[in-house]
Nucleic acid binder design. Structure first.
Lengths: 197, 197
DNA sequence: GTTATTGTGTACCGTGTAGTACAATTATCC
DNA sequence: GGATAATTGTACTACACGGTACACAATAAC
């Protein structure tokens, strides 16, 4: 145990709450008082533990990627391209409509509607989305190399299409779409894949 | 000509510029100085002509619906369901990647990432999106009544799927996706419709 | 020309924001 | 027990925000 007065809150639990606040309100829509209220700590404690607002947002983003968004890398490890798509769609629906956390996707939620000052945050979110699409694309290219690809579309186009549907579902979920509605959307989205591989 | 000193700017042209600013930065991301700078007028003139920020945003929204987003009602007047889908996808790609205005969709852009204070604006945008989906759904229900429907999916599901793809393309466009990339996405999205009707 | 009416420009108000200085508190280290 | 180190709570700074009061300018009506 380090010297000095011990911290009176759990930084991990506090970070989880910060994730939820950013998730609901976006980056610019979240104020420091919003955060201190949700975390149950006061301002200097927040700055001491997490740095300034941008720094805290980055930490929240990392935690989000490893937690609620962790289904994406997991889905990419499925053995076939078809299974990757199936899993990605199904897990996205589950995550986006999970009553345990806010609706929608933190990355999509926070990425849009940014003023001029938080340009760097927007760029970072854009990079995150781009790297997600690239990961899906690479997985599909691997599938094609392995003969696990029907050949209709290019892996890059397919990856972008899938990402587009996922973003759209995130927007729908943020707007209050139910799990059933999202499942119906996912079922239609699946149709781009040639039936029975 | 009304009595008093004449206005030194064109309100319609100014509103167009306001649309562009909100389009790029969202509702909360746009400040009054942003607007007065873009419109080339000073604050009291802006308030006299358009009311407060919310009032100006509503006027901008109406202008957006009648202008750049006017392709939606036009597409719904196509004679067949298949033509509606084709037109909606093609026109969306064109609009979302039109270099004449900001990338993406004002409604999607402004809808997410709202703080607690602008709840009413968020609700209004959510309503706008919902009414768009409803309009597509009604058009599809009409198609089914007219025998112009392949029967695979329910019109409601199909409408929601289409809207989801459009939202996703809006997110992609806002993130810098090219017209070609969007066209490839639209081509894949079209595949849900049974080939050759 | 005089007056009423409307738009413009400056300067302001109250509020909320991100971020911090500082004293008080609570622990470890020696 | 005294020095040291870290956290806490209060109070503050500087600034940006949305919105407006008010004096001045430019037009129409008379």
């Amino acid at each position: 145990m380090p010297a000095g007065r011990p911290r009176e809150f759990d930084p991990d639990a506090a970070l989880d709450r910060a994730v939820a606040v950013f998730w609901r309100q976006g980056y610019e829509g979240t104020t420091i008082p919003d955060l201190t209220a949700a975390l149950g700590i006061n301002r200097p404690s927040l700055y001491a533990a997490f740095g300034n607002k941008q720094s805290l947002f980055r930490k929240a983003l990392a935690r989000y990627s490893a937690g609620p968004a962790g289904f994406i890398p997991r889905a990419l490890r499925e053995p076939t391209a078809r299974a990757v798509i199936e899993t990605l769609l199904r897990s996205s629906v589950e995550m986006l409509s999970d009553p345990k956390h806010p609706r929608g996707c933190l990355v999509v939620q926070a990425a849009l509607a940014c003023g001029a000052e938080s340009e760097s945050v927007r760029k970072e979110l854009e990079g995150l989305r781009a790297s997600g699409v690239a990961a899906i694309r690479k997985r599909f290219e691997r599938a094609r190399r392995e003969g696990d690809w029907p050949g209709d579309a290019s892996p890059a186009d397919m990856a972008r299409y899938l990402a587009t549907v996922l973003y759209g579902m995130a927007v729908q979920a943020a707007g209050g779409a139910s799990r059933k509605e999202l499942q119906a959307v996912a079922a239609l989205a699946r149709k781009v894949w040639p039936i029975k591989k």
